[in-house]
Design a protein around this nucleic acid. Sequence first.
DNA 1: TATGAATGAGACTTCATTCAT
DNA 2: GATGAATGAAGTCTCATTCAT
Lengths: 207, 207, 207, 207
Amino acid sequence: MPRRGPNNGGDKRDRILRAAVKIFSRNGFFNSKVSEIARASGVADGTIYLYFKNKDDLLISLFEEKMGEVVADVRRRLAAGGSAIDKLRIFIENHMDLLERESGLVEVIMVELRQSTKFLKDYTPVKFFEYLEVISDILEEGKREGAIRPDLNVSVARRAIFGALDELCLTYVLSGKRKYHPSVTAAEVCRLLLEGLCVPGADVGKG
Amino acid sequence: MPRRGPNNGGDKRDRILRAAVKIFSRNGFFNSKVSEIARASGVADGTIYLYFKNKDDLLISLFEEKMGEVVADVRRRLAAGGSAIDKLRIFIENHMDLLERESGLVEVIMVELRQSTKFLKDYTPVKFFEYLEVISDILEEGKREGAIRPDLNVSVARRAIFGALDELCLTYVLSGKRKYHPSVTAAEVCRLLLEGLCVPGADVGKG
Amino acid sequence: MPRRGPNNGGDKRDRILRAAVKIFSRNGFFNSKVSEIARASGVADGTIYLYFKNKDDLLISLFEEKMGEVVADVRRRLAAGGSAIDKLRIFIENHMDLLERESGLVEVIMVELRQSTKFLKDYTPVKFFEYLEVISDILEEGKREGAIRPDLNVSVARRAIFGALDELCLTYVLSGKRKYHPSVTAAEVCRLLLEGLCVPGADVGKG
Amino acid sequence: MPRRGPNNGGDKRDRILRAAVKIFSRNGFFNSKVSEIARASGVADGTIYLYFKNKDDLLISLFEEKMGEVVADVRRRLAAGGSAIDKLRIFIENHMDLLERESGLVEVIMVELRQSTKFLKDYTPVKFFEYLEVISDILEEGKREGAIRPDLNVSVARRAIFGALDELCLTYVLSGKRKYHPSVTAAEVCRLLLEGLCVPGADVGKG
DNA sequence: TATGAATGAGACTTCATTCAT
DNA sequence: GATGAATGAAGTCTCATTCAT
């Protein structure tokens, strides 16, 4: 039976990752000190370097491993079946809901992933691409089912969908979690994405 | 009377701001050194502190002043008139086009504004809110014209629209400006936002 | 009864010492990590501290024990007999030859012994003094035989002889073992030491 | 008129170099802390990095610049003229004498130059080679004058001479400057090098 | 004996900011 | 106003050593 004590809540590497999520989300990557993460993990500074090459590697590992869990989780939820439209709803609700369940993680990914993707040499956000892939898969399925416009550019659409969700999460976080509750927002954004801004049958010009 | 010489075509303060855009967009805020910006502006390190309180203030001033120009510019373009739908198209095209005209500036805003909004004490991104306001104004106008759904939540929609555009710009930049050319993307995202993902008349569930 | 297995042909302590010679000669004492030596010895880091007090002690033990073998070895060779001049030749040839046979060891002694003798508290290089003693013994014997100048200051001469040999070894090592092959050098330096720089009978002044 | 105060004894860069000589000679390169040198120079830690790329560069600059002065100085002394034998005497006396005049510098060069030559990438001890060149020049001149054996291998001899002097200096330093005073040693080693160990006319074997 | 994960003190170095000129 | 040399606080990372197993 695993012991339960302050320093035995789990594997040391994982304790460090979880502390990093907390500290990075609170202060941002550049304003976070490795020693802070060490303190929050209950390990010595040097211990962090037994598990991670350096501070950058800690952030990247965090992205890939935690994002990997997110991807696996949403895929599991989607596997239950239903129409593509249902799945898109589930995906969106799951994304917005993540902010309640894994608040710190989402904040780190939202705020730091851009920096890292742009400025860290040799880092490809593999698991993030997989997350986008989940959206593509749904959209393609929707096309096959005849629910989604066959001429939709999936590459552009999946980015637009992710961007919309991401910005809404960010708004929620930056408002101090006071405005636009995720569940409300999810319904609203679903309708926007599925039906668009216009009243049905409106003339949108150019065609 | 302002002198006119080789290095005086612009005000020294503005030279610093323009250099900061260049350096911040290339390296990111935290990896940029004040002395680098000084060198790129052709002024001494200390001179920067005559015009800006500190490095943070330089970034914030950059946001507010440059973003102010962007807002004024897009408002001017929209003033020409047309339907709300036309205006939304113009807004979107203008946003995507910015990436060609003001590449560095857009990159800084995309990548650094989040950090700053989240972590800089006492900074409210006033001009950024005005930019969102431009979207709201268009949407409200569309409602009045009867082109946009009257039950649309404008607060959510404007964020979603901005998020979608922002993510598409980011994709373009991170791809090394090779994928999804802004003008192509603009048309695609316009249609997505106006008409939605679904085929017209499709049953999107929930009533 | 000592076990005989692949990794037990030598005593563990000796494996560590031999690995230390290799690592120290390659990287220098300060740039060598204890864990590197552990890996090269095939033991755990902590095991080194069962046999040596600390990193310094490892270096000192290495000096004394390995140097002890060198001294015993050269004494054995000299015991065969011959004139003092013959013995000096043997000594010099043996010294230069060591560089081929025990390259790493000689490099460590040349490069690290000075540091250690100067900066390590409480370290007297006993075996190194014995090596110098071997030279003294030869020189004294030469005096008794009448081959070496009776007024020679043996203390100075033995240091000068060692210094000359040492510098020539160093040159060989630092040249990447391309210049001044030890055997060639040995002959040359023998003649220099025995006969001096001058042509026989030359007036060297002051006398 | 230059002010004379604790912090105005000269150019800042030179103050740092002189402090480095003192600290390196006392503790050795690896045991010396940059902050110690800063304190001894009367500058802030960071100031050192305005003048030197890093700690290694400080040591290398020290070698080359100070050694350059030593070479220039001995060349000036030798320019007065005299026979090659006289010049060799002057060179040797000057070398041994350096230990009194520039004790710290000589100690650093003796103890640290080897390490650096062996382990620092991309460092060629240019000025040290020039010092050896001074010896070669004297020996070649001696050959032309007919005072020095024409078959002497100058490359080997100059190293042997340097090595002998170096070791004698080292002995003096390590003895706590109690044994073998430089001036005594100089005379003794001169005679050894010029006339050799043997009694004149002795049979040294091999021909 | 042997292990090797963990420790934590301490080094080097950077860089935003100041201030005498 | 303008300069840029100087500052020094602070952060990342290393590595000799320990000790529970």
